[in-house]
Amino acid sequence: MMPVLINDNSEVVFHFSIKLSDGSAADSSKVHNKPAKLVMGDGSLTANFEKCLLGLKAGDNKSFALEPEDAFGMPNPDNIYHLDRTKFGAETPAQVGAIIAFTQPDGSELPGIIREVAGESVTVDFNHPLSGQKLTFDVEIIEVKNSEATIS
């Protein structure tokens, strides 16, 4: 039986590790032993990330580097807000480097990183922490399912 290769319609279960350009680990699905799952083309990953997975099969390991545009994008200046220091309290002090979850009007939470505290103004960055960085991804393919009907 032929191994199932990742194609444009595959459902893929895989472990990943993300490394920064200095080689330090930024994230890994192996830490909590919870592999990622995606359906190719569902928009959860960039097209160039998906291209790097095409043709792989269960058991394959691959390492590839992605430019910021193909990973978490470039930081968007519109995602940086200046909030009044009175919005912060004892439980969520305004400290540079702190990551705070802000509740959105729809009830969902969005993490923001405090970049600067100046007088009564607190600068909060809602860009993804890895945006703007060239990253290396190590993937280990665990399972590949293709949705095409089998021809008997």
Rank of each mutant, 00 (worst) to 15 (best):
A26Q: 01
G89P: 02
N48W: 00
I80A: 09
F72G: 10
Y81M: 12
N48C: 03
T86C: 06
R85E: 07
E67F: 04
S29V: 07
F88S: 02
A47D: 05
L38A: 13
T46I: 00
M40Y: 03
A58P: 10
G59I: 12
V39R: 15
T92D: 07
G59T: 12
A65E: 15
D42H: 12
M40Q: 09
G23N: 01
D84G: 08
K62A: 15
I80D: 08
L53N: 04
I99D: 07
C52F: 01
L66C: 10
C52Q: 03
G43A: 05
I99N: 13
I80N: 08
F49T: 02
P105K: 14
E69G: 15
K37L: 06
A65G: 06
A90D: 13
Q95Y: 02
S28I: 09
Y81R: 08
E67N: 08
E91A: 11
D84N: 15
N76D: 15
D106W: 11
T86H: 12
P75H: 13
D70Q: 07
L45Q: 12
L83W: 10
G43Q: 03
K34Q: 13
L45C: 07
P105F: 12
P105S: 12
I99T: 15
L56P: 05
G59S: 11
D84H: 14
D106E: 07
M74A: 06
L66M: 14
K30T: 08
K62S: 15
D78K: 15
M40S: 09
Q104Y: 05
S24E: 04
D78W: 11
F72V: 12
D27R: 05
P35L: 10
A90Y: 05
S28L: 06
L45E: 07
T86V: 13
P93W: 02
T46F: 01
A47F: 02
D27F: 04
N76M: 13
T92I: 02
Y81N: 03
K34T: 10
I80K: 15
K51V: 00
T92A: 03
D42V: 07
I100G: 02
L66I: 14
G55K: 09
T103K: 15
P93E: 04
A98D: 04
T92H: 14
D60N: 11
D60I: 01
P77E: 14
D106H: 10
L83H: 03
A98R: 11
S44H: 08
P105W: 08
N61G: 08
F49K: 01
E50A: 04
Q95R: 11
G55M: 12
A47Q: 07
L53A: 02
E69C: 11
N79T: 01
P68G: 09
D70V: 08
